[in-house]
């Protein structure tokens, strides 16, 4: 062995090859089976993709770095089930490019925050967290009241569809209209969004103003959708825990 190494040390390309081979093993054995073992991700029947508005909100969530303080992953630990709700399933992020599981909880987990608070609360909290939670250390995001940039929204759905997210042609074509309609509860387009994404989606003036489509609309729509794309997690837990 030592002799072998003694000779390897003399060959720079030999060392290069050896390093590549030795370093590849672990990744291949751990990653490849995640694509082949079917039980890894089981997509439930009721699962829906994010609406264009929620997707835009997700991008604001990423842009502002909310994931630096918030996880979206309820771990399989009793106290987390108690505090946050059913543990997260792999399926719930199966169409997430990228996943936003997070690695730090300066603030609470958000995987199940959808529906927990009202839109008004989210708006107040995002504009000034300390107006509702005096001891909060979350940053304020007053600039989210500006208009939402929807310039690339169709391209975004197209790209995601290419990567396997089930956005069909009608969804892509109507992306912009759907984003507007979801934040204008009394407009003509609301039926269309509901047709395409299901009756369970929230159609509201999330920021309180149906006339303007703002970043706040998008982000709040996204937050309100967290944990609501499928009921599988709730059902899984109620089946097993009385």
């Amino acid at each position: 062995m030592l002799k072998l190494h003694y000779n390897l040390e003399k060959l720079s390309m030999g060392l290069v090859g050896a390093i590549i081979v030795v370093a590849s093993v672990g990744g291949i054995i751990e990653i490849a089976p995640l694509f082949t073992i079917e039980e890894t991700v089981e997509i439930p029947d009721d699962m829906r993709p994010h609406t264009p508005l929620e997707l835009a909100g997700r991008e604001i969530y990423i842009r502002e770095g909310c994931y630096a303080c918030h996880s979206q992953m309820v771990r399989s630990l009793a106290d987390e089930l108690d505090r946050y709700g059913p543990y997260s399933l792999a399926a719930e992020s199966a169409w997430d490019h990228p996943m936003l599981w997070g690695s730090k909880r300066t603030g609470p987990d958000l995987a199940r925050v959808g529906g927990k608070y009202s839109d008004d609360w989210h708006v107040a909290h995002l504009i000034d967290p300390r107006s509702v939670i005096p001891v909060s250390i979350m940053p304020a995001y007053p600039w989210l009241t500006r208009d939402l940039d929807t310039g690339l929204i169709e391209d975004k759905l197209t790209t995601l569809a290419r990567l396997g997210v089930p956005y069909d042609d009608a969804m892509i074509e109507n992306a912009l209209a759907d984003a507007r309609a979801q934040s204008q509860p009394d407009s003509d387009g609301t039926e269309g969004v509901r047709d395409r994404y299901g009756d369970d989606i929230a159609v509201r003036a999330f920021d309180g103003d149906p006339l303007r489509l703002t970043e706040m609309d998008a982000l709040v729509a996204y937050l309100q959708s967290l944990g609501t794309l499928t009921d599988a997690a709730q059902e899984m837990l109620t089946e097993d825990v009385p």
């Binding site: 399989s76 009793a78 089930l81 899984m236 097993d240 825990v241």
Partner: peptide, 8 residues
């Protein structure tokens, strides 16, 4: 997951 449920 079953373990977490049991503990719960």
């Amino acid at each position: 997951q079953a373990m977490a449920e049991a503990r719960l």
